[in-house]
Design a protein around this nucleic acid. Structure first.
Lengths: 196, 196
DNA sequence: CCCTTGGTGGACCGACCGGTCAACAATTGC
DNA sequence: GCAATTGTTGACCGGTCGGTCCACCAAGGG
């Protein structure tokens, strides 16, 4: 039929996602995208549409991947309480703290664009609600397993845990050293997930 | 001697700060700044330097003002525990939720620029540490007043409270409705500031 | 009164932005 | 091997960006 594509779509999206992750949306130029993708401008446009659409695709790839990891982590753990602890500790999981400084692409994008870009806002809400639902399910499971008191609302607890996690992400972005950040994460996990 | 200035410096800084607050740094053009300040480009440059320096001035104005409010709030309250609750609830203080959607200029700036702008990163760290110290002082006072247990570290608790507050700011920026946000704030305050 | 000094404002600049397009390359069907 | 179709590439476009510059203006000092 016609000339076949000379690139792997997923590979390009991941490269583009990393670029947006490191530099943000506005600070990433088309030239940057051409460089990290290895494609020409025309190919980029032909395959993914304009910069905004390409960004949304990269963002969606990020949320899908992260959501997948989260679901896996929450369901794989033998005890739900351990998984919830790991959820709060996730921002400090990287020993060197590089991940903490990079932050979360969804959070970065929300702060940069949510007020002006309805698509990004919608994606933020979608991700936020999906995460809340996943975490709430694990809170319920931890209650069933006798690790969390019965008298707390799973969804409300999930929202508190998510807020705590995002607060840690923020503190990581201010460059707070990883040890202090880890200590704070432990404090939050201990207070929000009491042993009883 | 010479022609006197025809504008009030603080008033201009506040107008500029609001513009950066609403639109972010990159998304604010010099034309926007000229519009909101009422000055010409030349006057703006003569009085404040380039865009970056003007931004830092506006950011500093914001952190100074916010820091002043915080100090006042923390020291004015008869009981420190009440002040700490108010600190956590601050992001949901606005009934309509408009303030929650706008977020915190320092947090917005950190997310947009901390990785690429050392000056903004330094300001973020400075503000973060000052806030931690202020809150920790109140935690200590609450302990003295018998409202918080003696066995927790004030600084560690302050960091946890700050993370919780910034997590709420983030959730506000995703457009979460103000009632849900308020409920989450209450949950966090209750867990992190137990009555005993 | 006019000279000096600093403030003002907008025309103007080069650079870079996102996006387009036309010439060319690679593949399949016939 | 030729036509049809799609992918690829980089030169090119108009627009906007941050920043500069200069002609003009309002005061005070002599």
């Amino acid at each position: 039929m016609a000339r076949p594509r000379q690139f792997d779509e997923e590979q390009v999206i991941r490269a583009v996602r990393d670029q947006f992750w490191d530099a943000g949306y506005a600070a990433t130029s088309l030239e940057d995208l051409v460089r990290v993708s290895g494609l020409g401008k025309g190919s980029l446009y032909g395959a993914f549409g304009d910069k905004h659409r390409l960004f949304l695709k990269a963002l969606r790839e990020y949320t899908d991947t992260s959501g997948g990891y989260l679901r896996e982590m929450l369901t794989a753990a033998p005890r739900a309480l351990d998984a919830l602890r790991a959820f709060v500790m996730a921002p400090v999981n990287d020993p060197g703290g590089a991940a903490a400084r990079r932050g979360c692409l969804m959070a970065n994008s929300t702060y940069e664009l949510a007020t002006s870009d309805p698509d990004v806002l919608a994606e933020a809400r979608r991700t936020y609600e999906a995460t809340t639902a996943l975490v709430a399910e694990s809170v319920g499971r931890a209650q069933d397993e006798g690790d969390l008191p019965r008298d707390v609302d799973p969804v409300e607890t999930a929202r508190a845990l998510l807020a705590a996690q995002q607060g840690l992400v923020f503190m990581g972005r201010t460059g707070l050293d990883i040890d202090t950040l880890t200590a704070t994460a432990r404090t939050l996990a201990a207070k929000l997930l009491p042993d009883a």
